[in-house]
Design a binder for these strands. Structure first.
Lengths: 132, 132, 132, 132
DNA sequence: GTGGTCTAGACCACG
DNA sequence: GTGGTCTAGACCACA
């Protein structure tokens, strides 16, 4: 658990570090790579592994706890919540998906990618992961 | 030209306003919705239409000019560049596409979307646009 | 780092302040006076030292970051990039050098300088710097 | 005289068009390519040739006339002044030359050119012109 | 009327 | 304390 293989900090990503970390953890939980009840690395471990300020990691953990994604047992550690909280309905609504998808397509085009190539690449990655 | 239908400011998007505007314009140019040589709305027009400070729009235009996406003719206006510059090689490389796609998938999962649903939605949107 | 000895604002120079600052920093980086990894003065420091608005300096820093000349570490400061990007090929091409040189010669003549005197002065300055 | 071969508008030059034109004419006069008494193209001719607004050319001519570089004979045309005015002493002073040279070297470095290559190129161009 | 520059000042995100 | 974003408003250069 000391190797945070579920998080890749990307210096070309303009989003703040804490957002990248939170996104990585949320995604790992959502996809089951971090199963319910699994223990997360300690704040210090993760901070050292990612070469990041410990405060930054602590901020992420506390936010995740507020949202019920993880649970902290004092003196023991931090664990993926047993009951994964249903996200606020609004966020996963059909409309939210459409908006998010539209924005992503726009972003891909703005970066100079062919949108068709981009979607094809997404499918490839999804398939590869299933096989693995 | 006075109706900036190619830009939607999204308050749920955490990226700064000027990034959203820039992304919208770049995408419109890349997909041909803003053809080469077309005049962009004036700084002030777009500022009013988006309810944004004129400096914010001006910042976007000047960045786009720096990158050769648009050309400004002094005292005349801003136009889509006749020769749209090939983006720096690095950005459109195969590797860049993979990284971007991976990040997007992660983001989708972190937001609580099923990645399969998400990719399906992307395809739907692409097809709809072609038909239109 | 608090004394911006690598920048001289020249009121007889018609180019905008932010261009002069950017040129100074780029030159300092290119010639090694600002070595890789070195910290630049903070935005506010440089603004005070040059008696310029902080936004003006911030604009320069952000342009330099966009071009990969510097890296900003959030909440920490701004540093010369470890890998200084090779300028877009076009700019350093032989042709670009010819054009730039031609323009400079023209400018010197237009200002009333003998072009021979001017080139001689350039050589003198280059030699002096090497000796120092 | 309808082909303004002594002026090259450079879209990569950030200085305003009227400055570029004025610089070109001043340089042509200073180097003798436009000898004393020679007739300049008419405002309209030059405007058409350079694809520039006639007002822009007119502005240049009137400024050059104010400075005594050219003379306008009503109904006849515009001519290089017989007595080339000595520029204000300050501009051609030794100190001004040093400052200008320093700025040029800085600019060359900032553009990614080796300053040695740059100075060598200047010499080459000077020699070539003499031979021609 | 067009875009460009600069200032002043506020507020925020980050570490 | 760092840089980033945005606003408001002024003034200028350009055509």
């Amino acid at each position: 658990m000391s190797s945070p293989d579920f998080i890749r900090l990307d210096s070309t990503d303009s989003s703040p570090i804490y957002v990248q970390i939170e996104r990585g953890i949320r995604a790992a939980v959502a996809t089951g790579r971090l199963p319910k009840g699994a223990q997360l690395p300690t704040v210090r471990e993760l901070a050292v592994a990612l070469r990041v300020n410990a405060n930054t990691v602590a901020k992420v953990y506390s936010e995740l706890e507020r949202n019920g994604v993880v649970e902290t047992r004092r003196g023991v550690g931090t664990f993926v919540a047993e009951v994964v909280p249903s996200l606020p309905q609004e966020r996963v609504s059909r409309e939210a998906l459409r908006d998010f998808a539209a924005r992503v397509l726009e972003d891909a085009a703005a970066r100079g990618f062919s949108r068709e190539d981009f979607v094809a690449e997404l499918e490839t990655q999804l398939k590869e992961e299933k096989r693995a």
